[in-house]
């Protein structure tokens, strides 16, 4: 099968910081690769190298059939890029923004105008098309941004944390748009901090940490590594946490982890929901004051804890 993106041994260093340290990626045409990782893992740097914005220190990459360092212009003609911040000109209207991108893609003025009008319709921006994009909501600005990225029919689309700062409804809209584009043959590389987003969109996921790909597979394979359901038990006094962890370990043969604040004991539940009563019974016997109890789906934190052997808790506090 044809690979729309093929990266081998990409490296980039900023001063003392080895931001990307030998990343290999392989994305078959017409699929979505989710690149999952915390802030500072090297996701954005990787995307910037693949999108020709940043020359790699080492390694090479072929995107849409062209080498990013040897023939960046040919790559640029075939890619779209949507970064973390909506890259629209706030002092231009939506229509003017798209027209400008069309002209700069060398479509010619008349074709750029027609294409801009088409994208306005397709992305549901007709009513706002002639207003300055400064007045747009976050969701509309994102849609305009995506329309700009897709205007020249790219073969490969880079989405760098595309739903950061979006409300759930706008996020779902954006996901639906991305899915329909991929159905039309587009290849997407999506970076995200959210397992759920990768789960919803990606065919395959590469987990990246400290500039390395530490795991890759389908979302289901990754989740199986972590276990399906998670149980979080928050105790009133941090001193009770080890007792709770021990009680749960005895009852379920899974060793729980304690969060950095020392008050929440977290574990996968063997047997899914059916394992909950066993865990509850163990908690009852531990006789400690419990302030919160939650059963939830795995988050990126859990994937990380599992993949890094629980040795390192993520710095990200909001899970």
């Amino acid at each position: 099968m044809d690979h729309a993106i093929r990266a081998e041994g990409l490296r980039k260093r900023y001063g003392d910081n080895q931001a990307v340290d030998g990343v290999d990626l392989l994305v078959p045409a017409g699929t979505i690769l989710g690149v999952l990782g915390p802030n500072g893992a090297g996701k954005t740097t990787t995307v910037r190298m693949l999108a020709t914005l940043l020359p790699p220190d080492d390694g090479h990459a072929v995107v849409a059939g062209h080498d990013v360092t040897k023939d960046p212009k040919a790559v640029r003609a075939k890619i779209g890029l949507t970064g973390q911040y909506a890259a629209v000109d706030q002092r231009l209207t939506g229509r003017e923004n798209l027209y400008l991108i069309g002209v700069l893609h060398r479509l010619g003025r008349r074709a750029a105008k027609a294409r801009a009008d088409g994208m306005i319709e397709r992305f549901g921006l007709a009513e706002a098309a002639d207003r300055l994009s400064r007045t747009y909501s976050g969701g509309m600005r994102r849609r305009l941004d995506l329309a700009a990225s897709l205007l020249a029919d790219p073969a490969v689309l880079f989405l760098d944390e595309p739903t950061t700062g979006l409300d759930p409804a706008s996020r779902n809209d954006l996901w639906a748009m991305i899915r329909s584009e991929v159905a039309g043959g587009l290849t997407v590389l999506l970076t995200t901090q959210y397992l759920e987003e990768a789960d919803q969109l990606a065919d395959r996921v590469a987990v990246i940490d400290k500039g390395h790909v530490i795991a890759d597979g389908t979302p289901d394979e990754l989740k199986r590594k972590v276990g399906e359901e998670r149980l979080d038990v928050t105790v009133a006094h941090a001193a009770d946490a080890p007792a709770v962890a021990a009680a749960l370990a005895r009852a379920t043969t899974v060793s729980p982890t304690v969060t950095p604040d020392g008050r929440t004991v977290s574990m996968t539940v063997p047997g899914g929901m059916l394992g909950i009563p066993t865990a509850m019974a163990a908690l009852g016997e531990a006789r400690v004051e419990i302030v919160d109890l939650a059963v939830r789906r795995p988050t990126l934190d859990d994937v990380f804890l599992a993949l890094t052997g629980g040795a390192r808790a993520m710095e990200r506090s909001a899970a």
């Binding site: 212009k73 909506a86 890259a87 700069l104 060398r106």
Partner: peptide, 17 residues
């Protein structure tokens, strides 16, 4: 400083523009 420059730089346009 604007994200727009990343977009411009990812287009097949003249850098001087």
């Amino acid at each position: 400083g604007n994200g727009l420059v990343d977009r411009f730089r990812s287009l097949p346009m003249t850098p001087s523009a």
